[in-house]
């Protein structure tokens, strides 16, 4: 009896094998938009350091349909990153109190609540409302 094991090839089509892999890829792709937005933030810092006219031009430059679309898409991905991150936090940081562990939902819930508070405070202090 001769052995001749067969090695099946792994191609990039694995991401389509099940919805969970697509969701994973979506989460990973959020990095492109968060990164791109942060680079835009660096540009904003550049304009801010150049004086009021440069800053005004920057703000004007934001007012275009493409920029709005980018922001909406980036916001969606950023929120997806936040939601997935906070849902996974209890797995990485389990908290034992007494004999039992704090339920995952409580840890995630606390993070979501803190996220809400931080966001509202930030927006309020920035004068968004």
């Amino acid at each position: 009896m001769s052995r001749r094991p067969y090695q099946r090839e792994m191609t990039s089509e694995w991401i389509f094998r099940h919805p969970r892999y697509l969701r994973y890829m979506t989460r990973e792709f959020s990095c492109l938009f968060i990164g791109a937005w942060t680079l835009m933030l660096v540009c904003a810092l550049a304009r801010l350091s150049e004086g009021p006219e440069a800053w005004a031009a920057f703000l004007e430059g934001l007012k275009s349909p493409e920029v709005v679309v980018f922001h909406v898409v980036a916001l969606a991905f950023a929120v997806y990153h936040s939601v997935t991150w906070f849902n996974l936090t209890p797995k990485a940081l389990p908290l034992q109190m007494g004999d039992e562990f704090v339920p995952d939902g409580a840890i995630s819930g606390a993070h979501f609540a803190a996220w809400g508070v931080v966001s509202l405070v930030l927006l309020y202090l920035a004068g968004a409302f």
Partner: peptide
């Protein structure tokens, strides 16, 4: 980024929509 970025993106989104929040005025931001 999970805590901060969505709110920050909202700020510049508002600016892109023409309703820049107070903090984004040159004097205040500077």
């Amino acid at each position: 980024t999970a805590f901060l970025t969505p709110a920050l993106i909202l700020l510049t989104l508002l600016a892109a929509l023409g309703h820049a929040p107070d903090l984004l005025a040159y004097d205040r931001l500077h």
